[in-house]
């Protein structure tokens, strides 16, 4: 029984991080219909920035998050307005898939050149503190990671549903043409969306950095995980990302615990493929034309 509960708890903690890491990906997919293969590398850039902040400035990774988000917001905005938009204009959406893949390769190479190919990890000052909940144990690092993830997802939901930026982003997602007729500068909104998504991806990277070790070649995994989360939960909404992420975290830990430590990835993709066939909209997704 204890094993079951502990696995459940670990799964939820991992799932919280997955949710946050996927929220930005889901936003871009939902608003622009662009599958952003750069997503994983942006998450990693966030992790490396948090590592640098701690290493060179002695700043706690969670306190570095606002700075990372501001930096990546502008980078994401510029990236969308230059490369992604021209790819979308010139040819198909599948071509934007290839462009983002190319950018991911370039950035991965740059990360290797700057930081080296080895695994890095961030060790905050509270790394070795544990909290006991009856027979269950959870360390401070995971607890703060889960807390930060949930707080940031709530922040994203607030931005999307309670601010003017969020309103125009949602309007553009519904129908870009009609939004344009109502005076929304659609291209600017696309840039904003990309900026917001990149900011949250970077924040996710900082959180991931304190829980798991990371290296430049991991980026593909984070992109795929984001995709799995979106397919499970549904495109475009923070709630979908949260549900999908928590489910994926549970699938991961339960598979590792009860089937074998080598199988979480296979199980994840199996669920992904089955889900695509049974309900491509995701659990919380609305009917989405692109899937059929």
């Amino acid at each position: 029984m204890n094993l079951l509960l502990q696995t459940l708890l670990d799964g939820l903690v991992l799932g919280g991080v997955f949710s946050l890491a996927a929220a930005g990906f889901s936003l871009i997919f939902g608003v622009m219909n662009v599958v952003n293969l750069t997503h994983g590398i942006i998450v990693l850039i966030g992790a490396y920035l948090a590592w640098s902040a701690q290493h060179f400035l002695g700043l706690d990774p969670l306190l570095a998050i606002p700075g990372i988000m501001i930096l990546l917001f502008f980078a994401g905005y510029a990236y969308q307005r230059t490369l992604i938009q021209s790819a979308v204009d010139r040819s198909s959406l599948l071509a934007s898939l290839l462009v983002t893949f190319g950018v991911a390769l370039v950035l991965r190479n740059l990360l290797v050149l700057v930081y080296g190919p080895d695994f890095k990890s961030i060790t905050p000052s509270y790394a070795f503190t544990n909290i006991k909940l009856g027979a269950l144990s959870i360390d401070m690092v995971r607890l703060s990671a889960l807390g930060a993830s949930l707080a940031l997802i709530a922040l994203l939901a607030f931005v999307l549903y309670r601010t003017d930026w969020g309103r125009v982003i949602r309007a553009t997602a519904q129908q870009d043409f009609a939004a344009g007729l109502c005076g929304v500068n659609v291209r600017h909104v696309y840039g904003l969306t990309f900026g917001v998504a990149s900011a949250f991806a970077g924040a996710a990277g900082a959180v991931i950095g304190i829980v798991l070790p990371f290296a430049p070649p991991d980026e593909g995994h984070w992109t795929m995980k984001a995709f799995a989360v979106v397919v499970l939960g549904g495109v475009g909404s923070p709630a979908g990302a949260l549900l999908g992420g928590l489910l994926l975290g549970l699938i991961n830990t339960f598979t590792a615990q009860f089937i074998g430590p080598a199988f979480p990835n296979a199980m994840m993709f199996l669920v992904l493929v089955l889900m695509l066939m049974i309900r491509p909209n995701g659990l919380l997704g609305s009917a989405f034309g692109g899937s059929r």
């Binding site: 599958v35 959406l93 599948l94 898939l97 695509l276 491509p280 692109g290």
Partner: peptide, 8 residues
């Protein structure tokens, strides 16, 4: 499945 969903 079509398009991006088939690809993935």
């Amino acid at each position: 499945l079509r398009g991006i969903y088939f690809a993935i």
